[in-house]
Every structure is written in C-alpha cells, then in structure tokens.
Design a protein around this nucleic acid. Structure first.
Lengths: 133, 133
DNA sequence: CTTGACCTTCCAGTTTCTGGAACCTTTATC
DNA sequence: GATAAAGGTTCCAGAAACTGGAAGGTCAAG
C-alpha cells in the first residue's frame, strides 16, 4: 500500500502520517525501489488506533504512551486507566473554564441591546476594573 | 511607567506586551532617552481591556476588532454583540465536543477494571473499527 | 509521449506566547 | 567611584500538531 491508500483506510491524512513518522510516533515505513513508502494491514491498525486516540483528545505524547501500553502484552490495565482518568480530569477542567466563559458572555450579550446605538455593556465590562476570572 | 509597572497594573506579562506591540495589536510605545518603553494610564486601560478579552477566550484577532469598536465612538452595539454571539457559538461547539469526549472516556474507564491484568476495554476501543465521533 | 494522479523532500506558516542569551540602564549600597 | 542587583533592550528558538506550497520524481492509462 502507498501512503494515500493507508491514509484512506486509517483516516489519517498522508501529510500527517509523514509527520508522525518524522517525530517518531510511528516507525519508519519501508520503501519501494523508487522511494515510495510502503504499508501493510498492521500499519492501518496502528494509524487507526492513533486516529481514535487523537479524536478523544489525547495529546500526541499521550498517544505514544497508549501505543506503548497497547503493544505491551504484560501491561497493567491500571496504567491505561490512569492515563484515561488524568485526561478526563483535564477535559473537565477545560469544560468548566469554557462554561464560565460562556455564562459570562451570555449574560453580557443579553444586556447588550444590539442595535445601532454605541453604548454596550460588553465593552464596558471588558474595559472595567474587575480582574481574576 | 516602565514596562514592568504597566505589566503589574494591567495583568499582562511584560514579554507579552512587547509581543502585542510587535504584531501591531497595540501601538508602539514611546521611549525614554535610553530606549526604555514608556507608558501611561491609558496604556494600562488598553492592556486591561485586552487582558479581560483574552480571559474570555477571544482570539487576538478578535481582540483587535473589539479594540476598534471600543475606540469607535460611533460604533453600533450590534457589531459588538455579533462578535460576542459568534464567540459564544464557538465556545458552545467546543464544550459539546469536550463533553462527548468526556462521556466516552468515562464510560470506557468505568468498564476498565484498572488492576494488574492486561485486558482493557479502553485499548480495545481505541484499536477497534469504529470511526466518526 | 503526454497527461494526471500520486509520491518525494524541505521550508514556512499557523497561534500565542515564553525562555534564554547577550547586552545596556538604573538605582542602591559601600 | 566601584559594584551588584533589578530591570530594561533585541533577537532567536521552541512549543503543539499539523498544513500548505514549491520543486521535482514516478507510475498507469490512453
């Protein structure tokens, strides 16, 4: 399989596959006589795993850790779970932050009449003294 | 005021202030004889506005737009509101995405016994066929 | 033989800063 | 006056995770 094929089957962009190879997330692909990268079914599995992991928001670094665990037949599921829980905590933190932002913005927008007059509580708030949010 | 002072009063890091100047978000500061940047109360207001806007998740580009509106005495509040609403929509989109991720991860983690045995539904899911999420 | 799709490498840009090096100015202290 | 600490200056590089584009080689079809 050429890189385009494996990209189609795995859902990972060809350019991104080369990038993953360059940073060492995936091993270097073997090459054809003319220099084209050559892939097999295992590579599709690997890239699918990566794709799913990235879709769940794991960093590339964490994906590397997950891959190590995946390949390690003697892994402890506790290690995988710890990674997942830590990621959940991070996701929760981001959600909380975004919800606070949304609540503030929604509140301000509701108080802004939004017509052709210039006065606007949103700008007033942004210009205001309050800190720490 | 030197850059350190204005940084303290505005909440924006000195390094970041120089960066904002370099990208044209704020005007170039006047200089003392020896080349130090020199600031006044208006600059503190400006940087506070920027700080608050960034804390609400507006991109630097959008902060620039908000600054333009802030300075424009003939602005229509509708323009400010439109920017805010568009940003809220983006924040909502991100929250939704993160919540989906969290739900999936939580579900998987609950099914992972998390001990020293290797079998783990999290890895199984990541290795699985399913796409599109 | 030509066309077009697909492959190669390498460099640059995106976003928003932040760290660090090398060096200069100011202020306080001895 | 000498010196040291704190704070200022510029410029370069890195972080995260790709993505776009240029310049050029390869392959299959007609």
């Amino acid at each position: 399989m050429n890189i385009g094929q494996v990209a189609n089957h795995s859902g990972v962009n060809a350019k991104t596959i080369r990038y993953y190879e360059s940073i060492g997330l995936i091993p270097e692909a073997s090459r054809t006589g003319s220099g084209y990268r050559s892939y097999g079914g295992k590579d599709v599995d690997l890239l699918r795993f990566i794709h799913h992991s990235r879709n769940l928001g794991f960093s590339v670094k964490d994906v590397g850790r997950l891959l190590d665990l995946w390949r390690d037949q003697n892994r402890a599921s506790a290690d995988v779970k710890a990674l997942a829980l830590s990621h959940i905590a991070e996701v929760d933190r981001k959600i909380d932050e975004l919800q606070k932002i949304r609540d503030t913005l929604t509140h301000l927008s509701q108080r802004c009449h939004g017509d052709d007059r210039p006065d606007c509580p949103i700008l007033e708030e942004l210009a205001g003294e309050t800190e720490d949010g």
